[in-house]
């Protein structure tokens, strides 16, 4: 086998909320890897900040037994994504690898997809992105720089996936589990993010780390009532104070 085979994998991510410390290393790594424009104070004040992955803080319990929790939220790559059918020009669609992808050059900027997204992980370029001159040569050459007027969102580091698959094909071998790492996963100090193939129909000898985690007792998905069927699976926070130990989100 020498050509790149497409659609063989179904990518997903497991986020162990119990391990997340809310350190935001993933946010920074993503920003650098994916040429996400710099967020100035003015942008945040106008609620236009961009972060393909963000760490949300939420409170659990009633005062005084209240606890701060962290949960990283990124594009859930829903199998049944509300953002996909509404795009009039197929700029966003579901690809055979189980990912919800955004094609920048096809986007006309209706922002309809962003309305549909219940996780609010889609971002619109209100302005042409600018970087300080000293940053210009630091941009990732493998990632398109998005111009103004289009949507963008987490791509599961598509450039890394493509490179990994290509390398395996070049060396005429199967892709190894863990060979492809997303930028956020690479940066996570507590190993809370695990990216990998989660296709249940894939006959594999080695199940892979992400795949072995999705059937965990603690596994859940966000907003299940909307039936979006995300490919990002969360593992619930373990709360020793609580009966049973595991607290849901």
């Amino acid at each position: 086998m020498t050509t790149e085979v497409f659609g063989k994998h179904k990518w997903g991510m497991v986020v162990d909320v119990d391990r997340c410390t809310g350190c935001q290393a993933c946010v920074l790594a993503c920003q650098v890897e994916n040429n996400v424009p710099l967020n100035t104070q003015e942008r945040y004040e106008r609620a236009r900040g961009m972060a393909w992955i963000r760490v949300e803080r939420y409170w659990e319990g009633e005062f005084p037994d209240v606890k701060a929790r962290f949960i990283p939220i990124l594009c859930q790559h829903c199998e049944n994504a509300p953002c996909e059918p509404v795009c009039p020009v197929f700029a966003t669609y579901h690809n055979p690898e189980g990912m919800n992808v955004q094609i920048y050059n096809r986007c006309v900027g209706t922002r309809y997809c962003a309305n549909g997204c219940p996780y609010i992980v889609r971002f619109f370029n209100y302005w042409e992105p600018v970087w300080p001159e000293s940053f210009r040569n630091h941009l990732n050459p493998d990632v398109t720089v998005r111009s103004r007027g289009i949507m963008e969102k987490c791509s599961f580091c598509m450039q890394r996936i493509r490179r990994g698959v290509r390398n395996a094909a070049k060396e005429n071998r199967e892709l190894e589990d863990g060979e492809i790492q997303t930028a956020c996963q690479q940066a996570c100090p507590t190993d809370a993010l695990v990216f990998g193939d989660i296709d249940p129909d894939n006959n594999r000898t080695n199940p892979g780390r992400a795949y072995s985690m999705i059937n965990d007792d603690r596994a859940y998905t966000l907003l299940p009532r909307l039936n979006t069927d995300p490919n990002v699976i969360y593992l619930a926070k373990v709360d020793p104070d609580r009966e049973g130990g595991a607290g849901g989100h």
Binding site: E4, Y93, V101, I103, T144, S155, R162
Partner: peptide
């Protein structure tokens, strides 16, 4: 019969 998915070239 090479892949024609958009993400092959656009990402």
């Amino acid at each position: 019969e090479a892949p024609t998915d958009c993400t092959v070239c656009h990402h």
